[in-house]
């Protein structure tokens, strides 16, 4: 379609405004983490790094960070195994109910997070509670893994679609055992997709708050929960802001790595 120069320019302006809308709030948090004023008087006239030092020394924030990393690693490990299995089943086999399976995978992120959260909460209370297993780190990992599976699934599925089976067929024709074919052909083909999917799943788990709120036991405070608990305490505001700034800076890493590892299709599959 040949667009008139005016149409091109208005699209360009829309894009620019959209990017400004997306990035201004994030930049504001970054700048505010150096704002010397406790109530973030704007514009800031006193720039300081003392909040960064205070945040670094904050025991609660550090503990929460550690908890989040543990939960993320656990959920990612489960999601990698389960997501890869389903993607192979869906991509390499035709079977009755295949569409249902792919719908079932999407369901945990298609339904509102609060529904997933309280479903897991009530199931845990009425089933696992009766078995004597209380809520804690384990229930958080179960909750996170449930919606992380789809991330790995999407990444591996996209890779399997793109690569096809000709290399594996060739390997089998040349006399390789199924194990050899997997070890030397299939696994190297999907390795970067696994890395990208695992990374994105970890990032999603790291950031999750709604399901976490409902599945975490009393002693389990992940970083998002810590931020939320401290959000309404004026005293803690500067420290919360520094933690927020750190998270914004860190968020560049998974996207950058995923792009490197698996090409542009990987990053998009958070959906």
């Amino acid at each position: 379609m040949t667009l008139s120069p005016a149409a091109r320019w208005s699209l360009r302006i829309a894009m620019g405004l959209g990017l400004v809308f997306i990035y201004v709030p994030l930049l504001l948090v970054l700048v505010n983490s150096f704002n010397g004023d406790r109530t973030f008087a704007w514009p800031p006239d006193d720039l300081t790094t003392r909040w960064w030092a205070a945040a670094w020394a904050n025991e609660g924030a550090r503990q929460a960070l550690l908890t989040s990393v543990k939960a993320g690693l656990g959920a990612t490990a489960i999601a990698l195994v389960l997501g890869t299995m389903v993607s192979f089943a869906v991509q390499r086999f035709a079977f009755f109910g295949r569409d249902t399976v792919s719908l079932l995978i999407i369901l945990p992120i298609a339904l509102p997070g609060i529904v997933t959260g309280i479903a897991l909460d009530s199931a845990w209370r009425s089933v696992m509670g009766d078995l004597g297993i209380g809520k804690g780190m384990f229930s958080v990992i179960v909750g996170h893994a449930t919606f992380c599976v789809v991330i790995v699934y999407n990444n591996v599925l996209a890779r399997l679609r793109r690569t096809g089976t000709s290399l594996e067929d060739a390997s089998a024709d040349l006399g390789a055992s199924p194990w050899q074919t997997f070890r030397f052909i299939t696994f190297p083909m999907i390795r970067t997709a696994l890395l990208a999917g695992g990374l994105l799943a970890f990032a999603l788990s790291f950031d999750e708050i709604i399901v976490t709120t409902f599945t975490a036991g009393p002693g389990v405070t992940t970083l998002p929960i810590w931020i939320f608990n401290n959000l309404f305490r004026p005293n803690q505001a500067p420290i919360v802001n520094v933690v927020a700034a750190v998270l914004i800076v860190l968020s560049v890493i998974p996207v950058w790595l995923a792009q490197r590892l698996a090409g542009p299709e990987a990053g998009a599959s958070r959906t």
Partner: peptide, 12 residues
């Protein structure tokens, strides 16, 4: 920004 924390964005 999709990977920046949800909470951080609401906080901003």
């Amino acid at each position: 920004p999709l990977w920046a924390s949800y909470l951080v964005k609401a906080y901003a």
